[in-house]
Design a binder for these strands. Structure first.
Length: 184
DNA sequence: TTTCTGATTGTTGAG
DNA sequence: CTCAACAATCAGAAA
């Protein structure tokens, strides 16, 4: 505590090591304001204060490495838990409108999630899978774009670009197959 | 003003 | 196979 926040995130390390990178972080406000992702990760080590920081710090110490942050880079698909959370958050907010801690919602959500049965998780998992499929498609377009020409600044002309040959949305949206839950 | 932090679990990516 | 990072959220805290 004397040091205040020792747990500096990647961006912070950059600042300490080189301010150059920080400058690059400025323009990103248009894309994602929340650059800082949580670092709680696995609680196995119970290391809320370190883990990723330690490794990152070591790396940075030797040499500053840029994580190549691409604005076009597709974000990872939300897992079933996150899908469930989206809805859970609404419910929780109604019950606790005064709550402002995301941590509280997270805890409650996690607890509730564990309380759910496989059958109950089924719909969420199904949705998550769908998201994953979409993610793959997006990632594919992203890769292609990189191959096409990542260094292209200023689009001179509207390029239709991403449309890849290949399937174009043929998926039947409602794939609600019977859920024969196989719970053990 | 802008960026980071917290807390949850799951999934993905890299080693 | 295993570990680590990151996915959303939202208001507050810090620089």
């Amino acid at each position: 505590m004397f040091c205040g926040r020792l747990r500096m995130s990647k961006a912070y390390l950059f600042v300490l090591c080189g301010i150059t990178v920080l400058i690059l972080s400025n323009p990103r406000r248009g894309f994602t304001m929340k650059g800082g992702r949580s670092k709680s990760e696995t609680k196995k080590a119970d290391s809320k204060l370190s883990v990723k920081k330690g490794a990152a710090a070591a790396s940075k110490s030797t040499k500053k490495e840029k994580p190549a942050k691409d604005p076009n880079k597709p974000k990872r698909p939300a897992s079933a838990f996150f899908v469930f959370m989206e809805e859970f958050r609404k419910t929780y907010k109604e019950k606790h409108p005064n709550n402002k801690s995301v941590a509280a919602v997270g805890k409650a959500g996690g607890d509730k999630w564990k309380s759910l049965s496989a059958a109950e998780k089924a719909p969420y998992v199904a949705k998550a899978e769908k998201r994953k499929a979409d993610y793959e498609k997006t990632l594919r377009a992203y890769n292609k774009k990189l191959a096409a020409g990542p260094a292209e600044e200023e689009s001179e002309k509207s390029n239709s670009e991403v449309n890849d040959d290949e399937d174009e949305e043929g998926s039947g949206e409602d794939d609600d197959e019977d859920d024969d839950e196989d719970d053990e």
